[in-house]
Design a protein around this nucleic acid. Sequence first.
DNA 1: AACGTGACCCTAG
DNA 2: ACTAGGGCCACGT
Length: 121
Amino acid sequence: MTQKQATARPGSRDFERDVHAVARLIPFGRVTSYGAIAQYLGAARSSRMVGWAMNRALNTTSEGQPVPAHRVVNRIGVLSGRLHFPTPIAMQERLESEGIAIRDHQVVNFNAHFWNPSTEL
DNA sequence: AACGTGACCCTAG
DNA sequence: ACTAGGGCCACGT
């Protein structure tokens, strides 16, 4: 995975699979952003597609392994994808169960929990 | 087939 | 510090 950059184009099946692969590497109790994943995969401007891939991860039953979609938030730590989970508070509850505090749909002390695949992988 | 709509983000004023 | 605009691209209508 270390040399996975700049391969699959955004929107492709491979890109979606790569997004899921990176998301599975987010450590317990840490979070990252859509843009950070997109940048790591060499498609810095396609962060929307990362969100779409997360959507698929939740709704597609034929996933080999689960994807921790709750650990992916937006640039400033807001749980912008919360409404796509089974219940509107499921995303928050999962993060809180990992020791991450949430206030007003936003990760408290976001920088301390942020995990950047480009620099930590 | 065109059009609007986003789990987004960066740049310019 | 804030807003507006543009790029991105799958999907539903």
